[in-house]
Write a protein that binds this DNA or RNA. Structure first.
Length: 420
RNA sequence: GGAGAGAUGGGUGAGUGGCUUAAACCACAGGUUUGCUAAACCUGCGAAGGGGGUAACCCCUUCCGAGGGUUCGAAUCCCUCUCUCUCCGCCA
């Protein structure tokens, strides 16, 4: 949610920012509605003050057993005006909120301007593409050949875009998640949380998925929605609170399933477990003071990259351009891991600084020198577990169809060297 | 699911239609006193928004779980909903 005062005093700049995010100029309309609302409010409040004054007089007159019919008639007269003005004010306020709640965040000054993913900018990379003396297979070939990755059974149970993992692959999924959680909690200063996977619409509004992107979500009825990412419950932990400054920074992590309808992705990545309706992810979330959020984004990115370095997986980091960034983000880094089977870099983590955008929507503030200031929120995958599993299968595969176990994961496998 | 009780500021908690402009206490912050700490005393201390002023500041409105209603006037009365607690039932 945007600060209306900012739009009021910088309408041109605001429209320019919105343009980079694919929005039409809207500041003039916002200012107009806001002005109407405030004017209505002023008149309304003056009348209310008048009514309160007269009512008080009536109270005094009555207690003195004097006649108050004249005053009562006066207030009666005010009533109609008050109702009309109240309705108008509510109308204008709703209009304003309807517009503001659907506008994306303003990009950071360091976010490259562009219209789609083609214009994302290379930031840095690590490692190099592994070489194979055979044709590396796709992850789903390795998985299906081992009989431990089954898409048909999953489709039988739930339809397309689900998977059943068995035995060592199911264990690998769990080992990856454990490794990530262990690292983030012991070395990176995050506190592990166990959170609900079903949340209210209000919670999704706070992080920005609603009202605009309901189509991407699964709902379980009765105002219960399945989380598309643990960012939603984690960021919302302190919603509607005023924190003490010494509680910051807050760094939390959680391993959860994520549910996405993939409404706009028909026909895209239909083979394998790259794009599923359900997948698991270890999420990182930070709440920090505004001055800290730029540094925190770099820190978070390093925490996510650290996992890939430990797993010895080659990756590159891209800075997303304005047109490819998510709704609530000011700046986003995507980490793309190299998948030799597919021969492509694929997103495995996305780290975003949302500034005060989400904090405004969910009303999370902290007290500093007697002032209440909105916190800055950040979220990042650290990492997507399913895609990490894919990356390990494709990067650690051997000629005989087996998969070597990465050094840091061996302790979860009784120090075995290979998976099968 | 059934029965009952409840929801008031950071916390405890008073307030059943108009001297409530939400008391009091605790916590917290500043100050006085003080060899240090503590105690005592003094002062301050919720949020959102509107208006005025160059400004320090001043005025006003709204908020007592949420939303409606009654009334000249609602924390207080009425209706609906949500949540919490206790007991019973069911249950991993």
């Amino acid at each position: 949610m945007h600060n209306i005062n900012y739009i009021r005093s910088n309408p041109v700049e605001f429209d320019n920012f919105m343009k980079t995010r694919g929005e039409r100029p809207i500041a003039q309309k916002i200012i107009e509605i806001d002005k109407e609302k405030r004017e209505t409010q002023t008149v309304l409040q003056n009348l209310l003050a008048e009514r309160n004054q007269i009512s008080k007089t009536i109270g005094i007159l009555k207690s003195e057993k004097k006649d108050a019919t004249k005053e009562m008639a006066k207030v009666d007269d005010l009533k109609n005006k008050l109702n009309t003005l109240k309705e108008l004010e509510t109308l204008k306020d709703d209009e304003l909120k309807a517009i503001l709640s659907r506008l994306p965040n303003i990009p950071d000054s360091t976010t490259p301007i562009g219209s789609n993913e083609e214009e994302n900018v290379f930031y840095r990379d690590w490692g190099s593409k592994p070489s194979f003396n055979f044709d590396p297979k796709f992850h789903f070939e390795i998985g299906e050949n081992s009989n431990l990755m089954n898409f048909e059974t999953a489709t039988k149970l739930s339809g397309p875009r689900f998977v059943v993992l068995k035995g060592q692959l199911s264990k690998l999924e769990r080992a990856i998640a454990n490794f990530m959680l262990d690292k983030h909690t012991s070395s990176n200063g995050y506190v592990e949380m166990h959170v609900p996977y079903l949340v209210k619409a209000e919670t999704l509004y706070g992080t920005g998925q609603l009202p605009k992107f309901g189509e991407d979500l699964f709902t379980a009825g009765d105002d219960h929605w399945l989380i598309p990412t643990a960012e939603v419950p984690l960021t919302s932990l302190c919603s509607n609170q005023i924190l003490n400054i010494n509680q910051l920074p807050i760094r939390v992590t959680s391993y959860t399933p994520c549910f996405r309808s993939e409404a706009g992705a028909a026909g895209k990545d239909t083979r394998g477990m790259l794009r599923q309706h359900q997948f698991t992810k270890v999420e990182l979330v930070s709440l920090v003071e505004p001055e800290q959020s730029n540094n925190e984004l770099e820190r978070m990115l390093n925490c996510a990259e650290g996992i890939l370095k430990d797993l010895n997986l080659h990756y590159r980091v891209m800075t997303l351009c304005t047109g490819d960034m998510g709704f609530g983000a000011k700046k986003t880094y995507d980490i793309e891991v190299w998948l030799p089977g597919e021969g492509k870099y694929r997103e495995i983590s996305s780290c975003s600084n949302c500034g005060d955008f989400q904090a405004r929507r969910m009303n999370t503030r902290y007290k500093s020198n007697d002032k209440n200031i909105h916190v800055h929120t950040l979220n990042g995958s650290g990492l997507a577990v399913g895609r990490t599993l894919i990356a390990i299968l494709e990067n650690y595969q051997t000629l005989d169809g087996n998969v070597e176990i990465p050094e840091v994961l061996k302790k979860y496998f009784d120090n075995q060297n290979t998976l099968f």
